[in-house]
């Protein structure tokens, strides 16, 4: 194999990008309008975590392969690590911080506590956002259907039995 990486894949480095590499956008996060001046490269996830200090949304892989970064984008669940913030000027984003109403937890949050649908808690915000969407989509007809439609959220602690129970309960209640 090559002794060094110098020649690999970088010989054709483009010259500087044409046009501005920052942009100003507005995101409506949990109902609140937030204006941001961002590097074009900023992912929606980093905009939340590093710029808006909304660290509830987690970065597990930054490659779309774990679901920890799941948020609702105009009501649909997406992986915020694989989309650029500036593609969503004016969009409504709901994060885990936006679910509870004051002291009252969202039914999905309450169900996760009741069924112990987590251990370390790191995948949990993503699981909960995904669960909220899963229920809204109507993919909760059976435990197996829940399992299938919650499979975009990896839980390394293996809290799946509790997650399935929590989603099933919240779906029944809602």
């Amino acid at each position: 194999m090559a002794a060094g990486s110098a020649a690999l894949g970088v010989a054709d480095l483009p010259t500087d990008a044409a046009g501005p590499q920052t942009a100003e956008i507005e995101l409506i996060v949990n109902g609140r309008s937030r204006r941001l001046e961002l590097d074009t490269r900023t992912s929606l996830l980093d905009a939340l975590r590093e710029h808006l200090q909304l660290t509830g949304t987690k970065k597990g892989c930054n490659q779309g392969a774990c679901g920890a970064c799941t948020v609702l984008l105009d009501g649909r669940r997406v992986n915020s690590c694989l989309t650029l913030a500036l593609m969503h000027d004016g969009a409504h984003i709901t994060t885990v911080e936006g679910l509870a109403r004051g002291d009252a937890l969202h039914p999905v949050q309450a169900a996760f506590i009741e069924h112990d649908g987590f251990q370390c808690g790191y995948c949990t915000p993503g699981q909960i956002m995904s669960a909220v969407a899963c229920i809204a989509e109507g993919h909760t007809g059976s435990d197996d259907e829940i399992r299938a439609w919650m499979s975009g959220n990896i839980c390394r602690c293996g809290a799946y039995p509790g997650i399935v129970a929590a989603v099933a309960q919240a779906a029944r209640a809602g």
């Binding site: 660290t55 885990v96 911080e97 509870a100 937890l105 996760f112 506590i113 808690g121």
Partner: peptide, 14 residues
Amino acid sequence: GRAKVTGAAQYAAE
């Protein structure tokens, strides 16, 4: 539990 389901629990990078 509440801290974890609301996103309030802070992990190192946060």
